[in-house]
Amino acid sequence: MTAQMFFIGFFGLASVWFGIVVFRTFSMVRSALALLFSQTALGAMFLSMQAEFLGVLQIMMMATEMSIMAIFMVMFMMDPGGLGEMDMTHQKRLSLGAGIVAFVAAVAVAVFVDWGPIADVAPDAAQQTVDLGLELLGRSMLIFETAGITILTAMIAATAVAIPPVKRKPSKGATHHEH
């Protein structure tokens, strides 16, 4: 058993365990931060798979994302502290079944497919970063730029949906209501 194998297994297990905690705790902040630690464990797993840039990026991005998620949870849930232990689920048996079927099917595919030759060495971290940069601004530039434009569109659309509608008075005197 190599160190890499151990770390992948350990962080994978941690990630899945925190992922389960997300849906088992009643406190909404705990739930959001459990998701954060699930993603952080995933980032650590990326690091142990020698993808340094992506691992660090994952650890960095998810912290902000999930913290923002935490405040939205507190804003929109009726019982964010979880002291009332409200049940917030429905169709439990169906979803549990679907989750298990999805898991088993994916594992079956992973086990029974012949993945071909396994590569032993990955390029070193600095080389990877250079390669990824050249890939993003070379062959995959169109996809990358499309992603950028899409995220800009999503930001504008989300802001437009989220800002409160301005109510204008029909009378002419109400100039201070116009924006």
């Binding site: 954060l36 340094e52 840039f53 960095m60 912290a63 902000t64 913290s67 971290a125 970063t129």
Partner: peptide, 21 residues
């Protein structure tokens, strides 16, 4: 680290997580 300048950011974001906690 080969990603040192990014790693500083990644570590410092957890200041936010600590303060929210």
């Amino acid at each position: 680290l080969a990603t040192g300048a990014l790693f500083i950011n990644a570590a410092l974001v957890y200041v936010l997580v600590a303060l929210i906690m």
